[in-house]
């Protein structure tokens, strides 16, 4: 009787630790799988770059179709930045610095980060859904039956399409945002156009600010594209599995973008 009671307690303890450990081991296994998947994608990169029309089609899907949302969002973000920034700067009599504020925040942070978040929800989810559905309808298996490697034929072009599109989209976001800031600052609030552009140009450094923003967006492009193709490839081959995978792409991408942004910012702008 007594032995039985102790046995039960031990059983509860063991179950508790297994409950804690299972998600951890799952996550580690998945991470390892993602890393090997990344290596496989890189290994099949030459084939997808040689048949560049495949990658071109993916740039069209991921990049060209995202231009509208990126451009419009950038314009509005820049206009809001200008309105809010003006409200604060005018109290210190520094409203002529509005251009610097708008340009620096867009080029350093908002262009790459918000651009990548929009890219993940617009293009990343579509990539995951497409690959996941191809898996669910056994198209990937059919390719393998025909001795066509699905990673070389489907995954690698989508990955590189995303990687190539992302920095271009981020640059467009920043450019549209600065144009929006110009519209509000100069056209609506009546700042002097010359001082708006001149102060901006004298305070924004090409290497330190613009190039670092481009490097950031390249990192985000790699991260988002990898997450999107991996989640699609890893999806359970059911309707529910594909929907879960699509959700996971958006959530994981957002978290990875923001965490990666902190790390990159800490490296790039620490001493400046």
């Amino acid at each position: 009787m007594r032995w039985n009671w102790e046995w039960r307690v031990a059983n509860v303890v063991v179950r508790f630790f297994s409950r804690v450990g299972a998600p951890l081991t799952d996550a580690i296994v998945k991470f390892g799988f993602a890393c090997r998947f990344f290596v496989a994608v890189l290994r099949h990169t030459p084939t997808s770059l040689l048949r560049f029309s495949l990658t071109l089609r993916e740039i069209w899907f991921a990049g060209v179709l995202s231009v509208l949302i990126i451009g419009v969002s950038g314009l509005f973000v820049g206009m809001v930045l200008a309105l809010q920034g003006y409200d604060t700067l005018v109290r210190f009599g520094a409203s002529s610095s509005l251009g610097i504020l708008v340009a620096l925040s867009l080029v350093r942070e908002l262009g790459p980060v918000v651009g990548a978040l929009l890219f993940a929800s617009r293009a990343g989810s579509a990539i995951t859904a497409e690959i996941g559905l191809m898996k669910a309808t056994e198209q990937l298996a059919a390719m393998e039956m025909m001795a066509v490697n699905p990673i070389a034929r489907v995954v690698a072009p989508k990955f590189w399409g995303g990687v190539i599109s992302m920095p271009l989209l981020a640059a467009m976001f920043s450019a549209m945002g600065i144009f929006g800031g110009y519209l509000i600052g100069v056209q609506l609030l009546g700042l002097d156009a010359g001082s708006f552009w001149n102060q901006m140009q004298s305070q924004v450094d090409f290497r330190l600010d613009v190039l670092n923003g481009v490097i950031k967006s390249a990192f985000f492009g790699i991260a988002v594209s990898l997450i999107a193709v991996f989640e699609g490839f890893d999806a359970a081959p059911t309707a529910e599995g594909v929907s879960h995978a699509t959700t996971r792409t958006v959530v994981t991408s957002a978290l990875v973008i923001l965490a990666l942004d902190f790390v990159l910012t800490a490296f790039m702008f620490r001493g400046a």
């Binding site: 080029v107 920043s174 450019a175």
Partner: peptide, 15 residues
Amino acid sequence: AGAAALLFLALKVSS
């Protein structure tokens, strides 16, 4: 368009 945006950032926005 992407290259033009980058060029704009390089020539008009930064120095």
